[in-house]
């Protein structure tokens, strides 16, 4: 009689009292949201980092004509806050501007120098002032302001993702608490019998906690698995923004964080069930 002997280790009959797909299904939906939030947080962090590190340090110097490029380069390379100064090749500039100006621009193009500052927080205006003193007509264009705005946006998105994650965990705990109460109501007689036979609160709460933690972890595993294709698609779409060297598709996903979702769900389910059952048991002497 395998069906019956199987219950010997489950004296509260929780496999039947706490069964069905409602709880794992709800947890799966929340794990999906959690996975999206985790990936969003990591993606936003990556973008913010990259923009701050890369673009914020890039400064363009405009010169009225090509003859002043060499003195300007010499002056810039002498400055200690400048990490790198490189003239932009005229052919490349032509290629960059062709879509806007046509194949043979009638207007004279300025010469451009790309700068990289050692410290992205340094004020490029000061560099520009000192350069203008040496090479008249030099104008410094910093992208710092819009990069800082983009980075601030990315950081807000990241913070939002963490808030969403906390909210999802709280809702998951509430769902587990409701399921625990339903299980307590269904097994009230059995709990009273075990309690009367001398079961400790820890025995009874532990059985509920293991069962509910397992259900939550199963649901979370399903939800996270469902999130993976979506995230892979998003990672593909985001790849150009994150830079060419970034991996695409599946390998771009934040795997450690995603793999942590089911164990985290188990912990939320376990702890919520423990607290709910122990509080309920206080009504028994």
């Amino acid at each position: 009689m395998p069906r019956r002997s199987r219950y010997s280790r489950d004296p509260l009959g929780l496999r039947r009292a706490l069964s069905g797909w409602l709880l794992p299904g709800l947890v799966a939906a929340m794990a999906l949201l959690a996975a999206l939030a985790v990936a969003g947080a990591q993606g936003a962090a990556g973008l913010a980092d990259r923009w701050q590190r890369g673009a914020a340090a890039a400064v363009t110097v405009q010169l009225p004509d090509a003859a002043r490029v060499e003195p300007a380069l010499a002056a810039l390379r002498a400055m200690e806050e400048v990490a790198e100064a490189e003239a932009i090749d005229a052919a490349r500039l032509d290629a960059l501007l062709r879509p806007w100006l046509g194949a043979a621009p009638a207007i004279p193009l300025p010469a451009l120098i790309e700068l990289r500052l050692r410290d992205p927080r340094a004020d490029p205006v000061l560099v520009g002032d000192r350069l203008a003193a040496v090479v008249p007509g030099a104008v410094v264009e910093a992208h710092g302001l819009w990069v800082r705005r983009l980075a601030a946006l990315a950081r807000s998105l990241q913070a939002l993702a963490w808030v969403v994650l906390a909210l999802v965990a709280a809702v998951a705990a509430a769902v587990v608490a409701v399921a625990t109460r339903a299980g307590l109501a269904a097994r009230r007689d059995a709990i009273e019998v075990l309690h009367g036979l001398g079961a400790r609160d820890a025995d009874i709460a532990g059985r509920f906690a293991r069962r509910l933690g397992l259900l939550a972890a199963l649901g979370a595993a399903g939800g996270t698995a469902a999130a993976v294709p979506m995230l892979a698609l998003l990672a593909d779409l985001a790849a150009p923004w994150v830079g060419g060297e970034a991996a695409r598709g599946l390998s771009a996903l934040p795997w450690p964080a995603l793999l942590a979702v089911p164990p985290f769900a188990f912990l939320v389910g376990w702890a919520t069930a423990q607290a709910t059952v122990r509080r309920w048991l206080r009504q028994l002497p």
Binding site: R4, Y7, S8, P11, G13, E192, L197, G198
Partner: peptide, 20 residues
């Protein structure tokens, strides 16, 4: 009686020993 209806007779009788 307060037996647990979903446990076999054997498991019902074994409960106090398992709890101990």
């Amino acid at each position: 009686f307060r037996l647990l209806p979903y446990l076999s007779v054997f498991d019902n009788v074994a409960l106090p020993l398992r709890l101990a």
